[in-house]
Design a protein around this nucleic acid. Sequence first.
DNA 1: CGCCATTCAATTGTGCGCAACTTAATTGTG
DNA 2: CACAATTAAGTTGCGCACAATTGAATGGCG
Lengths: 171, 171
Amino acid sequence: MAGASYPGTMDTPDDDWLRLDQQICFSLHAASRAFNGVYRVILKDLGLTYPQYLVMLVLWEHGELPVKKLGEHLRLDSGTLSPLLKRLEAAGLVTRERSARDERSVQVRLTEEGTELRRRALQVPRRIAASTGFGAAEIRALRARLDDLTTALDAAALSETPGGSPADARS
Amino acid sequence: MAGASYPGTMDTPDDDWLRLDQQICFSLHAASRAFNGVYRVILKDLGLTYPQYLVMLVLWEHGELPVKKLGEHLRLDSGTLSPLLKRLEAAGLVTRERSARDERSVQVRLTEEGTELRRRALQVPRRIAASTGFGAAEIRALRARLDDLTTALDAAALSETPGGSPADARS
DNA sequence: CGCCATTCAATTGTGCGCAACTTAATTGTG
DNA sequence: CACAATTAAGTTGCGCACAATTGAATGGCG
């Protein structure tokens, strides 16, 4: 509200950029936490945290996966996944077993109970969607925007990195 | 509330909702972390983390504030802010002092060095904006969308709360 | 005035996210 | 075959987020 409208970028002064920056980074941060909060409440019934739910979604879709693949789907590394999977295992939702073929890799499988949980999870998305007040189309549009953003940011992070390793051709 | 029909939803089957849900929550989660990653790299020069930067932005704008007010601006509670502010204090960027007027409250003030840091921070937003590949207008549009989302989610979180304490007129 | 409810910060405990490092298995190369 | 390089998980350490609790200060009310 403060002073105004900047049509394009033209020569927006630094101070205004700083204010805009405050707004956009705050907005994304806040939205992410707000989302997290709603999921927290809804997922409490299932005994899952939000990240655990994401892992379960991937497993429900793919059946079973090594930790590495799970990490690629979710962009998470073993530092995050290992303890998380241990908790899911303790909860009786998954099993972790070293692969016989390649002893380095650990296969994550749904238990009976884990598979079962999917039925109860089916109503979660509707409750979330209802909470947003957004329709399917709007959600899809927002998702597309966010994915663009993520793609751009990931690319930028690489070029911006001090090490800046150029070779990043991931599988 | 079961069986209700939702705004844009025809009769999309549950399975598809689950898949869409996977996508939108994953997208937001990923975007948030990607943003965080870019800030991490850029803010390293300033010796700040992303949440610390948010706190500094608020302080640069308002000069000095009690912890409570800081928390309202950022939607963070003392559980998060107390240790964070201690670290900013240790870094010599802020001071914390119990208010003489009301001994319960702690006033957070910028030090000389903290005020000084703003000049170096002025170029951060431009680097971030460049990383996103978005123009000011796009950023603003996205921000507006995210704020809508946050508002809706916050409202929903309250009504969704298990305790659903009717008297939830906070503040 | 005395007491109780409220308010603000801080603390504790749990979980996520990420960097850096460790350990073990596999692969590639001579 | 032997040995270095690579790969997969796990571990450690730090910081953030949030719920729940604690403790001190304040304000309201009889």
